[in-house]
Design a protein around this nucleic acid. Structure first.
Lengths: 182, 182
DNA sequence: ACCTGAACACCGTTCAAGT
DNA sequence: ACCTGAACACCGTTCAAGT
């Protein structure tokens, strides 16, 4: 709050005139950061494709600007951009032929997968270029494990931590093809 | 740290003799909290079943004691219990017939799904009994949305936020059947 | 070898007072 | 209607000093 005050050229406590507390401010800013998702989304005639492209865009947007991520774990903000994202996913699921109780489970599963992936990948993605070096260092650690205690991990060591986008998208594809009629 | 010191009847700064910093302590405690997963796991002859039961146990353990969750987002701790969980999943995937590059992607996808679900559900699960009341309050909010702007969300309002275990397990089943040979 | 205690450099937030 | 500034009640961590 002090850093924000300085950035704005204003007393740190002036913010409390406009937001009840830090989390309230974060919810508002967090929803603003989602506007590239709503604006960048391009609907097609294929509901499964729409869900996939929206989720990929949502994940990369959250990773680029993770300010809203921690607040999301406390529940839905029910603010405009978040609601529009919910609407796009639910209406796509409806278009795909899913009725309401199953569509809702599919929605929660898919959004949970997307938010979870963004949450796990955000810290490393921020690190930028040394992300690849970090992965290499981890792999080296796994390579030094005792093959008697951890044989499968030791054998897989060199292949651990592939591109996180690949992991996310392969999971997303499995979820969509498992939960959405096609 | 001050609260911990008081609990131990010791100066708050005494901890720094044994751990380099707060995160170091949390990594160690976090791995200890995973021991019920390793000890409670009961292997069968079905690799897919083993992965599912391990992940369900891991998720509920993390939710019951989420101290290690935030640290996990900064990368693997590579401590004993975490490594054993990795080993169980990778060896199950191997048993199922998956070779190394694909097995690793399946591993990351499945563990990401499990950690992500625990992260999203932990705050509400801690709230305990008013969790259901919270869900009801949220549904009421969604029911009041403008049906012209959010038709699909409005129509699904009453069914949103089903039991989080159901959401997690249906996603897990879809992932396993999509990524693991059977 | 381990712990203490003062201190540093921070936090989010409240509230009376200002303009 | 909005901002200021002092103050409260906290943080994690360091480091010289103690036993």
């Amino acid at each position: 709050m002090r850093a924000l005050g300085e950035k704005l050229g204003v007393d740190p406590t002036a913010v409390y005139r406009h937001f009840t507390d830090r989390d309230d401010l974060f919810r508002e800013v967090g929803d603003r950061t989602l506007s590239p998702v709503v604006e960048g989304f391009e609907p097609t005639t294929d509901p499964s494709k729409d869900i996939a492209s929206l989720c990929i865009l949502l994940r990369s947007t959250l990773i680029a600007n993770p300010i809203g991520l921690q607040i999301t774990a406390q529940g839905p903000t029910r603010r405009p951009n978040e609601l529009l994202i919910t609407e796009i996913i639910l209406s796509s699921l409806k278009r795909s032929g899913l009725k309401v109780p199953k569509a809702v489970i599919a929605y929660h599963t898919i959004i949970e997968h997307t938010l979870g992936s963004a949450w796990l990948d955000a810290p490393l993605a921020r690190a930028g270029d040394n992300r690849l070096e970090t992965y290499t260092a981890w792999r080296d650690d796994y390579r030094e494990l005792d093959p008697k205690v951890y044989p499968a991990t030791r054998a897989a060591a060199g292949d651990l931590y592939p591109a996180s986008e690949l992991v996310f998208e392969s999971g997303l594809a499995a979820l969509i093809s498992g939960l959405v009629p096609h």
